[in-house]
């Protein structure tokens, strides 16, 4: 029997989802739904926008206003939605490739504007939908179908990139740490400005198999054993942190310059355009 949360926030007729057994995306999708529920939002006023890729199939299953867009463009579509109707809560579900490769330009500029959109990146470190090509978050040295001799690219630190570009809330959770991740997404939605939450997923089918990471259980256990809360990490040195995954709230600092749609509304008011 599905839980009350699933019955309420998902389109039951469209389940089961298409993700592989063991994929971390299902957990992260449920985290987003729970966070929306915890914020007591009217589902009619919630819009979920996604791009293209495994992560972006989430939108179709969720019982809100859902827009499944083009590869990389979810944040740009979301910008138009939020600008045109600021009373809507706009949440983007995207992946590591969708958000930071083909959509990287939209990401940094939405951060810069500090527009009130919450982006949740399902980071599985690989292009799953197309069959396992390396992404901007595939660790250097690891393999993908297009990095057969080991990846020589350096990786993007997604939350660091967002913060540097002007996001006013950044955080990282994992598929394993569901309780914490729900809270992080909840806080991101509550932030009046641009929020980015990286949800570290697991892809046993492509990333895991290609890099000999073992079973899904082993991959989830890795998250459990190697994740360090950001507060604890503050007291650890570089050596101790090597190979660890820092999670938690990295940055929560409502902008001194204000949120984008509010600033635009000030211009409209000044010109008498609101009358």
């Amino acid at each position: 029997m599905p839980s009350k949360l699933v019955e309420k926030t998902f389109r039951m007729e469209n389940l089961p989802h298409i993700w592989c057994p063991g994929c971390g995306h299902g957990i992260l999708m449920r985290d987003v739904a729970q966070a929306i529920e915890n914020c007591n939002l009217d589902p009619e006023k919630v819009v979920i926008v996604s791009g293209i890729g495994c992560s972006s199939r989430a939108a179709g299953y969720m019982n809100f206003n859902t827009l499944h867009t083009a590869h990389g463009r979810a944040i740009a579509f979301a910008t138009g939605i939020k600008m045109a109707n600021p009373e809507l809560t706009v949440i983007v579900i995207t992946g590591d490739g969708d958000c930071t490769a083909i959509g990287g330009n939209h990401l940094i500029h939405a951060c810069r504007r500090n527009i009130d959109i919450t982006v949740v990146v399902f980071n599985n470190n690989i292009y799953g939908m197309t069959g396992g090509q390396y992404s901007p978050t595939t660790p250097t040295g690891e393999k993908g179908t297009t990095a057969p001799y080991g990846n020589i690219d350096n990786v993007f630190d997604i939350t660091g990139l967002a913060q540097a570009a002007g996001a006013t809330y950044t955080a990282r959770g994992t598929a394993y740490h569901a309780t914490q991740t729900i809270k992080l997404i909840e806080n991101g939605i509550k932030n009046k400005g641009f929020s980015l939450i990286e949800g570290v997923s697991v892809c046993p089918t492509y990333y895991g198999r290609k890099n000999k990471k073992g079973s899904v259980v082993k991959m989830m256990n890795w998250q459990k054993d190697n994740a360090i809360d950001v507060k604890k990490a503050a007291n650890m040195d570089e050596k101790e942190l090597k190979g660890k995954l820092i999670i938690g709230e990295f940055y929560n600092n409502p902008s001194t310059t204000g949120e984008y749609t509010e600033r635009y509304d000030e211009i409209i008011k000044k010109l008498g355009g609101d009358k």
Partner: peptide, 10 residues
């Protein structure tokens, strides 16, 4: 993309 997004909300 943003123009289409705005149109989606009418």
């Amino acid at each position: 993309a943003a123009a289409i997004g705005a149109s989606v909300v009418g």
